[in-house]
Design a protein around this nucleic acid. Structure first.
Length: 274
DNA sequence: AGGCAGGTTCTTA
DNA sequence: TAAGAACCTGCC
């Protein structure tokens, strides 16, 4: 169906923003997998897009996935050019980035895998995991099979030896444990939705293989708490070099996470890209 | 060839 | 409680 989007919306930037790992350029559009849903999106005009789904699925899923009810333009305009010149530049550069409303389970596993890996390696590992334990749900426009992200139950049934074959490295035991804990109910991701950001952080840190960085990514991308501010090597470099006096967290609350995305995207563009 | 990549856990003082 | 080492794997 045709969709018109008035707010900031740039598929290429979202794909490269590091928040999603199954969102890839494919032919003349983008191939996106979220949970057990597949979408192909093509830009057809200035603000016009062709979504491969029907209206029902758009309203029931993808509209929410792309967080189309939130104005990222408004959030961006909270930045004062005079007061914070670097962030202003970063936000102009990253205009079009949105924080997707992704699934907590999928994000948890994805960011556990992400530690000490570069983005291509993360993507490769996740695709192997999906092909191994997920279901075939579609074929992309290039004819490749598309697999759903494994459910907790599906993943929990994968033996360790097979998990190791997904290039997870030492993270295989973290992934395995997370699946077992979610299936057993020791970790109830759904019930965590009602917790405050602080309580949520506390619960996530109890998980094996989850530290502060991964927990913050889960809070921002899995629970869509837009104030969470994950600090990775890139962001730490920016904070050291550009904000020796400190970043204005108070000013940008409750949208520090969006600012983090602009900083991350901008700093990476200046570095090696990947 | 050795270092490093979107960190976390384990070990040691 | 706080540094430092170890950790899988793939790519430069």
């Amino acid at each position: 169906m045709q969709v018109r989007i008035e707010d900031d919306f740039d598929l290429e930037k979202i794909a490269d923003s590091g928040q999603c790992f199954r969102f890839n350029e494919c032919g003349d559009g983008y191939s996106i997998v979220a949970g057990d849903k597949y979408l192909f999106v093509k830009k057809t005009g200035e603000r016009e897009y062709d979504f491969s789904c029907d209206e029902k699925e758009f309203k029931g899923f993808w509209k929410n996935y792309f967080d189309l009810e939130t104005s990222y333009s408004d959030i961006r305009h909270r930045i004062d050019k005079e007061q914070d010149e670097y962030l202003f530049r970063a936000s102009e550069f990253g205009k079009g980035i949105r924080i997707l409303r992704q699934d907590p389970w999928e994000m948890l596993i994805s960011f556990i895998i992400s530690q000490r890996k570069n983005i291509p390696a993360i993507k490769a590992a996740i695709e192997k995991l999906c092909a191994l334990a997920g279901d075939k749900i579609a074929e992309d426009t290039e004819g490749k099979d598309v697999y759903s992200f494994p459910t907790p139950l599906q993943l929990s049934k994968v033996p360790m030896e097979q998990l190791s074959a997904c290039s997870l490295g030492y993270r295989d035991k973290y992934v395995h444990r997370a699946a077992l804990d979610v299936v057993s109910g020791v970790c109830d991701l759904d019930s965590y939705k009602k917790l405050t950001d602080e309580e949520l952080m506390e619960k996530l840190l109890e998980l094996f293989g989850v530290g502060v960085k991964v927990a913050n990514c889960e809070i921002l991308f899995g629970y869509h708490r837009l104030d969470a501010f994950p600090k990775d090597v890139w962001i730490n470099r920016v904070l050291e070099q550009r904000y020796p006096e400190g970043f204005l967290f108070e000013k940008y609350a409750p949208y520090n996470g969006v600012m983090q995305q602009y900083l991350f995207f901008y700093s990476r563009s200046e570095g090696t890209g990947n």
